[in-house]
Amino acid sequence: MKRFVLLVLIAFGALMFYGVSTLPDRADPRAPANLEESAAGSPVAQDYYIRHAYEDAHTPNMVTVILADYRAYDTLGETMVIFAAGLACFLILRRRRQEDLEEWEESEGLEESEESKEDGTRS
């Protein structure tokens, strides 16, 4: 099984090696991501960002401008992701204090595996 997984991974790696080697060179000024205007005639985002970030938001750090202005909605999403993680930990680990104490008192004399009795009942 382990060998099979290894084989699959090696095949996948080879495919990816092939895939990245067909890409345009890193830092190639003619790569589609580094152009001024895309093949379809629309402006390329990075060119616009570099040229206009300062006049649009009076902020020299372009990353900040993109993060909090051009793509601010992504950053809102990012903050929500962190918030979601906090809330998820809250839901998974924290209980109400009172129940917690009761459960603790209940299980004090019991074995460790009995701990989450309350959770395991409805199966």
Binding site: L23, P24, A31, P32, A33, N34, L35, S38, A40, S42, V44, A45, Q46
Partner: peptide, 11 residues
């Protein structure tokens, strides 16, 4: 992104 330089779906 590397092949198109854009992230917008319509673009």
């Amino acid at each position: 992104y590397n092949m198109t330089g854009s992230l917008n779906m319509a673009d």
